[in-house]
Simulated assay, not measured.
Amino acid sequence: MENFKPVTEYIKNLYDTREFIPLHVPKFRGKEKNYLERCIDTTFVSSVGKFVDQFEDQMVQITGTQKAVAVVNGTAGIQVALRLVGVKAGDEVLTQALTFVATANAIIYNHAHPVFLDVDLDTMGLSPKAVSAFLEDYGELRDDGCYNKKTGRKISACLPMHTFGFPVHLDELISVCKAWNIPIVEDAAESLGSEYKGKPTGSFGELGVFSFNGNKIVTSGGGGAIVSNSVSLAEKGKYLTTTAKQPHPYEYFHDELGYNYRMPNLNAALACAQLEQLDTFLAEKRNIAEIYADFFKTQSLNFRTELPNTKANYWLMCVELENKQDRDAFLKYTNSESVMTRPIWQLMFRLPMYEKFQKDNQKNAIFLEERIVNIPSSVR
């Protein structure tokens, strides 16, 4: 464990404290209090208000899409986005097992079935090669879409997740899914501000979904957003997340099953002030990543950096250990020294509610699960 002492001391010095160093905390240095007070003064603190509209406009500008829909959290956003692209009960969704549980949960909320495919070692996100190999083995194109020959179920969507803000290989994934007539929904919960070949993540699929949880690069306390270049899809999303209520001056008429998933104006006020600082946060994140990268060149740990033609937001920065034994020792030592570190998630198929779903060999995902650790990544 003494091998990890220099790393621990370096992180303490970087954050200029000997106290507990958390993994990621929000920074409120802008107009957060001002906007919250203004929101309260209007008395519009629920799902209607100026700040909800402003937040949606800001997300359109940031993501380069045509329309955004404010929702209560990223999980709800994915659930609705999957429904919007046609996922129905009994259908299948191709996704990755190396992800936060919300990705898989959102599929189940639609009464659909996740199919867990491998990730790429360089992106830690869904592998186009794994998707292609699976479809070559099990895919069958019919007039109404792609079906899984093994299960007989329709494969209604592909749901990649941009792990820790590192974009997946989008060109290749789009090409594969287009050939098999499978729409893409991007789980961009962790990648606000990330880019692939100069274009924001979340803007490539039929829809993209972002999270504004308290630990994200920009936070609204709790909240999410659905974005799309299809105005009609996004408008349907707004309608569904507003309990599928038909507009009327006073009558309450709901013509299909909807959700009470709209972001409150109070949360949107906080989000608007945070989004105004996004460029500053991204610049500071990149500076911390550069400092870490230089330091870890002298250590036995591999610090993960962005790939060519991509721009990562470096939401949660991470290192790769030699093996699981070293990973566990690193986690134990750093946390005992009040430096918060966390392993990457346990693979979804290891969880009791997901152990029976179809998966491939997961070779890369298992390799990363045993080695990747997040280190403190807050803006200073």
Rank of each mutant, 00 (worst) to 15 (best):
Glu140Phe: 12
Gly145Val: 08
Lys149Ala: 11
Lys149Val: 12
Lys149Arg: 14
Thr151Asn: 08
Arg153His: 12
Arg153Val: 08
Ile155Ser: 05
Ile155Glu: 06
Cys158Asp: 05
Pro160Phe: 06
His162Lys: 01
Gly165His: 00
Val168Lys: 04
His169Trp: 14
Leu170Asp: 11
Ile174Pro: 00
Ser175Ile: 10
Lys178Asn: 15
Ala179Ile: 06
Ile184Pro: 07
Val185Tyr: 04
Asp187Gly: 02
Ala189Asp: 07
Glu190Ile: 04
Glu190Cys: 09
Glu195Val: 07
Tyr196His: 04
Lys197Pro: 05
Ser203Lys: 00
Phe204Cys: 06
Gly205Met: 02
Phe210Pro: 01
Phe212Ala: 02
Phe212Ile: 01
Asn213Trp: 08
Lys216Tyr: 08
Val218Asn: 07
Thr219Cys: 07
Ser220Tyr: 03
Gly221Lys: 01
Gly221Phe: 03
Gly221Glu: 06
Gly222Asp: 14
Gly222Gln: 15
Gly224Glu: 01
Val227Ser: 07
Ser228Arg: 02
Asn229Gly: 12
Val231Gln: 09
Ala234Gly: 09
Ala234Arg: 01
Glu235Pro: 04
Glu235Cys: 08
Gly237Asp: 03
Gly237Ser: 00
Lys238Arg: 15
Leu240Lys: 02
Thr241Leu: 03
Thr243Phe: 02
Lys245Arg: 15
Lys245Leu: 13
Pro247Met: 03
Pro247Glu: 00
His248Ala: 00
Tyr250Ser: 10
Glu251Ser: 13
